[in-house]
Design a binder for these strands. Structure first.
Lengths: 213, 213
DNA sequence: TTTTTGAAAGTGGTCTGACCACTAATCTTT
DNA sequence: AAAGATTAGTGGTCAGACCACTTTCAAAAA
């Protein structure tokens, strides 16, 4: 009978251990030798599990010191997979399209509520006037305002995975366009807002940003 | 000086090797012992690299046979993302809503193409008539037809976390409703299709499935 | 006493060699 | 020719040994 691989058990056992003992990012994890003894496996098996987690950026190892739980911002999943998976252009297209799905859904959600009347909305408008306002800030703000944190997280991860389509500053011409989108949202005209957003976004990606420079 | 870890070098060397030798998904990779000799490192180092890639789903190992390059559809991007994306923001409502985002986007996508004229569409209609057609089958079929595999994967994952809102068989009354949705899609009337879908889905979740039993 | 030094203990990084469990190809027997 | 047994090759795991490095702390020097 083909047995399940031990190192995979170790991976999940370690996840449980981290949760049960409430180990926080930055904290130290028991040493490889300790883990091997405690879990009754060889050290090399422990290492196979640890190296897997390390490649994902979930843990950090410092020779001579020990192994530590990583800060979530250091998780490397996205970067890693992009180096292996991104060669397939179809996948890349899927990523871009899925991002767009979340973005338009966010706009739809905002239009469906009275979010445009909340104080955060005013602060949004104010920040748009700042001279160093980035394109990414605009979209992220929309995602946050949608109120769906899961959607926001997925979007954020996809963004890194897609090579940052919203890189760069907002030019004065663009600012007018964005203001129109916000106005449409304020009037709860989802259709117009989405139309405007898609126009802006398609110019960014297909036009290689030339129009705005 | 703290030297870079060898197993990381191995990871990238293997990526290069795969590209240069044009190894395709399903093909066999040199054995661990061969790689160890060729790259002049210990077998355990090779294994640390291989186990990392295996956790990502980039390779597959079969004891007694060898190590093989995985099909891209087996990559574990989404699964791994979920293990720590869903941890803190796993509000059930967000999950359900995000699922819905992907579902409506799928319908929208199908309506935008001529998918309803493809042979797969007929097979879809045929399967709907089967007596053991599950609700989940209906939605999954839509997700597949959208053509966005990433979106499909995300949806599939969310489904597991959401307590399977589409559990159960399709009742005869339901079948009429679903047929209407499909007809709207066939006529490329996205708005009507989505309206119909949301009506069906909201009855399922809020009505606790009572109406259909 | 305070500071410096350095030896020891502990940790991750790597290699080697040895089994085991399993598969597939080969050889042997029927 | 077919069925069974052998064997070579593969991944899975373990134990033990070094190495390079960091921290600690006690001994030596100031």
């Amino acid at each position: 009978m083909n047995q399940p691989k031990r190192y995979l058990n170790i991976v999940s056992e370690m996840r449980d251990m981290i949760r049960e003992q409430n180990i926080r990012p930055g904290d130290r994890i028991p040493s490889e030798r300790e883990l091997a003894e405690k879990l009754a496996v060889g050290r090399s098996t422990i290492r196979e599990a640890l190296r897997s987690l390390e490649l994902l950026g979930l843990i950090e190892t410092r020779r001579g010191e020990g192994t530590f739980l990583s800060e979530p911002r250091n998780h490397r999943l996205v970067e890693l997979l992009s180096t292996f998976v991104l060669q397939d252009s179809k996948s890349h297209e899927d990523v871009r399209e899925t991002m767009c799905i979340h973005e338009t859904a966010a706009i739809q959600a905002i239009c469906g509520t009275d979010a445009a009347k909340l104080p955060v909305w005013d602060s949004f408008l104010g920040r748009l006037e700042a001279h160093d306002f980035k394109r990414e800030d605009f979209v992220r703000e929309l995602m946050v305002l949608s109120g769906n944190r899961l959607s926001l997280k997925i979007w954020f991860l996809l963004k890194q995975y897609s090579g940052n389509p919203y890189d760069g500053d907002v030019s004065p011409e663009e600012k007018k366009l964005l203001t129109n989108i916000l106005q449409a949202i304020e009037e709860q005209d989802a259709e117009a807002a989405i139309r405007g957003f898609k126009a802006w976004s398609s110019v960014l990606t297909k036009g290689e940003n030339k129009e705005w420079r």
